[in-house]
Amino acid sequence: MVDKDVVVDFLNSKSGSKTKFYFNDFTALFPNKGPREVKKILTALVNEEVLEFWSSGSTTMYGLKGAGKQSHAEGES
């Protein structure tokens, strides 16, 4: 499977329960790749507008573009 599809399929498979993921969740999908290589795959997907960043201000997560809620109240996940 193409690397980008691995990412997108993973996000689609989780879409029922979770829409935003830590960078580490993606490195786990590619046990043979270092973090820098995984970052390149994610960056390409962001540039293609398939993924987008979500940020609380202190932490950043990745999700499919348009999926899930925008903002959170304190303590809400």
Partner: peptide, 22 residues
């Protein structure tokens, strides 16, 4: 507090620099 935090705000391609507050 009456602030919510976070969001998909930012400029294209950047994952930082903008902090969403509602």
């Amino acid at each position: 507090t009456h602030w919510k935090h976070g969001g998909i705000v930012g400029v294209f391609g950047y994952g930082g620099g903008v902090i969403g507050r509602y």
